[in-house]
Design a protein around this nucleic acid. Structure first.
Lengths: 344, 344
DNA sequence: TTTGAATATGCAATCGATTGTTGAAATTTA
DNA sequence: TAAATTTCAACAATCGATTGCATATTCAAA
């Protein structure tokens, strides 16, 4: 790299024999500069290929116009869509995005949050990792006076802005639909119960069973099955039961639903006639499997936009008191072949 | 938001009756501080919940330890994987990532690049948008003395570091495989020829035809078909030809290959026996369609890591001359059902 | 022509951290 | 004990941009 120095407002000031203040004012389109000199400054800035040093500017102004995002995995459909949504909204406001992934590791999550604090981001948007049980690092964000918005996987006990899906309702509707289709013994693949979203989904499942007076069978509920492999393993276990289920609701993810489907296919069990399957997330592939998989769409891109806009809205009202606010987005059940027991 | 001020090195200095310089030295683990005072400073920093202001630090040091990434779409499998790979490598080096998406728009790409320059990122990693024909904005990056690394979709004429796939070779192997399977009339869905990657893929296609003495038929080559819809449209066009193709190589993406498959299925044309299909990118869904789709894996995550490591490597050798370097990653043909005409 | 207001510009402090230089104190060596 | 050396900390400048305050200039109103 050549050691060429970048042009600063001082260079411009020197060349035009004015002070840096005037240059700054011209560049910021302030009224306290003569129109003629403003034009001149702007022209020379262009000529010298001047680029504002955002670091210096932000340091002085005391904010960074940057939002930090921490997600478990960038390359997971749901999250990359949320990020795309956030980016879409923040870009329009001239904000930047710093992205971190926790890889579902608590340690990396804490480190990422600390980096973002050091970077003086104006807001941290986070969906916590599976491993996260305590929230000292998030409390720290609040203590540092940084806006914190949690989405999807939220630490319930922490009073922050939150954007979530109505998991309970969606889960209820899914199981209700499954029952309506005539399935009687419905298994649940559930996620780690330290995360609220999975507790809610379980609640929805239980509510639906209750509504139809179907007893809860504990051996039909299997915990921690949020990958394809775990879903497959759980399915083998379930199907070898004396009284196996006739439907499986993979409330954790479409990936585990895929595991279910693959095992069923391998065991020559017909879906949906012998076994109903429902996933969660509406991953692109659920439409493409045979049979296609019934699932729940979370409106991820929209969720991202909502998160970002929530921040900007709070920013405007920053003079008034901050109320812990929760925005709940109602997900949509997408009925596909894998649960269509009744012919239409 | 409460207007609480964050603690700075001055606060620490004042409390301990030392100078900020000493605090800074202690915090940076310099040797020019007494062990005892260093410990004391570190302890008080902890107590006051001190967080370094990276903006100030970076301003002084003249770099940002940040890498800017510009991709067409964050939520596209290939790109989100590359980003994940970059993140993985940069995180280990204590670097941050600022992510921008161009949405395939030239204008937004230029704006994104400018923002990154203003942010004084140390390096810009970019995969240009479909729309990008000129590269003034990239030249500008170079002029500002910022390292520039292009990947996948690169502006060939610009002498920068590049990480690419050997598209020509991969494309050649795919078409070669298709021919070996017994297909005779092979159509090509090609991408915008202003992008080098698509030109290379076409070259590979032509080379494979030449190898097997198959004449090139112009009406079998259809340009600009990089979405599912465009792929479907092109397929309808191709299949209504007096002499329709018996195989279609969707060199643009798996999405267009999916469009081909859907049209074929709708028209009751058997894949692979009547029509062979090959996509590009190894999107997750290609494994799940029926039949599964033959495609080309680009090792996207690995590509991201390569990009990041290339930067760090160049950083180490920054005293020596910078040579425009091109790293080519050989993609891998993944043969699946959609081209398996020959029974095994 | 004098006064007052409006406009334009300069000065200097500031944001928070880093670092080269300098000098005092402590330690070692002769 | 004196001289030489090392250790430690203070001082002050710096990174680049912003902004409150003060001052100078211009112009209109009285």
């Amino acid at each position: 790299m050549k050691p060429k120095k970048r042009t600063t407002i001082y260079d411009i000031a020197q060349k035009l024999n004015v002070t840096p203040s005037s240059v700054s004012r011209a560049l910021n389109n302030s009224n306290y500069v003569n129109e003629a000199t403003k034009k001149l400054i702007l022209k020379t800035a262009e000529e010298l290929n001047y680029k504002r040093n955002t670091m210096a500017s932000n340091l002085r102004k005391g904010h960074s116009k940057t939002i930090g995002v921490v997600v478990p995995r960038i390359n997971q459909n749901f999250f990359s869509n949320v990020i795309a949504g956030i980016e879409d909204a923040t870009y329009k406001q001239g904000y930047n995005l710093i992205i971190c992934q926790s890889n579902e590791s608590y340690e990396k999550e804490v480190q990422s949050v600390n980096t973002l604090i050091n970077q003086h981001v104006d807001c941290i948007v986070i969906s916590v990792s599976i491993e996260s049980n305590d929230h000292k690092h998030l409390q720290n964000v609040l203590d540092q006076n940084i806006q914190l918005i949690q989405f999807d996987r939220v630490a319930d006990e922490l009073e922050t802005l939150k954007v979530i899906n109505d998991n309970e309702q969606a889960s209820f509707e899914a199981v209700d639909h499954i029952i309506e289709q005539g399935y009687k013994r419905i298994a649940l693949l559930e996620g780690p119960q330290n995360l609220d979203i999975f507790r809610q989904r379980k609640k929805g499942y239980l509510n639906a069973l209750a509504k139809h007076n179907i007893p809860v069978v504990n051996e039909l509920i299997i915990e921690n099955t949020w990958t394809k492999e775990l879903g497959a393993k759980a399915t083998r276990q379930l199907l070898s039961l004396p009284e196996p289920p006739d439907a499986i609701f993979a409330s954790t993810s479409d990936f585990s639903a895929l595991g279910v489907l693959e095992v069923a296919t391998a065991m020559n069990i017909k879906v949906p006639s012998q076994l109903g399957i429902c996933g969660y997330s509406n991953e692109a592939f659920t439409e493409l499997t045979s049979p296609s998989i019934t699932t729940i769409d979370q409106f991820s891109f929209y969720m991202g936009k909502t998160v970002a806009n929530l921040y900007f809205q709070e920013l405007e009202n920053s003079d008034t008191i901050v109320v812990p606010k929760i925005i709940s987005i109602k997900p949509k059940l997408i009925v596909r072949s894998s649960t269509m027991k009744k012919k239409r």
